[in-house]
Simulated scan of single mutants.
Amino acid sequence: MEELNGTMIFWLISAGMVAGALTKVSIWKQGVDLVPNLIGGVVGAVVVGSSAIMINMPGSLAFGFLGSLAVLFIMNVFYLQSEEEHA
């Protein structure tokens, strides 16, 4: 089984950063900026991936990537823009 060690944490952080960067590239001028997307992706991947490891589910890296996408979706959907940015 997988264990939560430094290598797995590194891969979860990497998957979260890739998801954050891909999210920013795909929505370009709408949504939050690059740095909050990267932070949200990393947080989502580490929390969900670590949770999957703790309950002994296989494929924790895939769950981490999906968790980061879920956090990024929520961040960007509920992002409030000012009226000047809409014009």
Rank of each mutant, 00 (worst) to 15 (best):
E2I: 14
E2P: 14
E3M: 05
L4T: 00
L4F: 08
L4S: 03
N5F: 03
G6V: 09
G6W: 08
G6C: 11
T7L: 05
T7V: 04
T7F: 04
M8A: 11
M8G: 00
I9V: 09
I9R: 00
F10C: 01
F10Y: 08
F10K: 02
F10V: 00
W11Y: 15
W11Q: 01
L12W: 05
L12N: 08
I13E: 11
I13Y: 11
I13A: 15
I13W: 15
S14T: 04
S14D: 05
S14P: 00
A15N: 07
M17A: 15
M17V: 03
M17Q: 10
V18H: 11
V18Y: 09
V18I: 14
V18E: 06
A19I: 12
A19Q: 09
A19K: 04
G20S: 13
G20C: 09
A21S: 07
A21E: 10
A21W: 11
A21M: 13
L22G: 13
L22A: 09
T23C: 11
T23V: 07
K24I: 02
V25M: 10
V25D: 13
V25A: 13
I27N: 15
I27G: 00
K29Q: 11
K29W: 12
K29M: 09
K29A: 00
K29T: 12
Q30R: 14
Q30I: 06
Q30L: 13
Q30P: 07
G31N: 12
V32K: 11
V32R: 15
D33V: 01
D33Y: 03
L34K: 02
V35Y: 14
P36V: 01
N37T: 05
N37C: 14
N37L: 12
N37Q: 09
L38C: 10
L38E: 08
L38A: 07
L38Q: 10
I39Q: 11
G40E: 05
G40N: 15
V42D: 09
V43N: 07
G44I: 05
G44K: 13
G44A: 02
A45T: 05
V46H: 12
V46E: 12
V47G: 06
V48C: 14
V48T: 14
G49I: 00
S50V: 10
S50Q: 09
S51Y: 15
S51W: 13
A52E: 05
A52M: 13
A52K: 08
A52F: 12
A52Y: 09
I53E: 11
M54T: 01
I55A: 07
M57E: 04
P58Y: 06
P58G: 03
G59Y: 14
S60P: 04
S60T: 00
L61R: 01
A62Y: 08
A62P: 04
F63E: 02
F63C: 03
G64H: 08
G64Y: 09
F65Q: 08
L66E: 01
L66A: 11
L66P: 01
L66W: 04
G67H: 09
S68N: 03
L69G: 02
A70I: 05
A70K: 01
V71N: 02
V71K: 05
L72P: 12
F73Q: 10
F73K: 07
F73P: 04
I74Q: 07
I74E: 12
M75I: 01
N76C: 02
V77P: 02
F78M: 02
F78L: 03
L80Q: 08
Q81Y: 03
S82C: 02
S82L: 03
E83Y: 07
E84D: 10
E84Q: 04
H86D: 11
A87I: 14
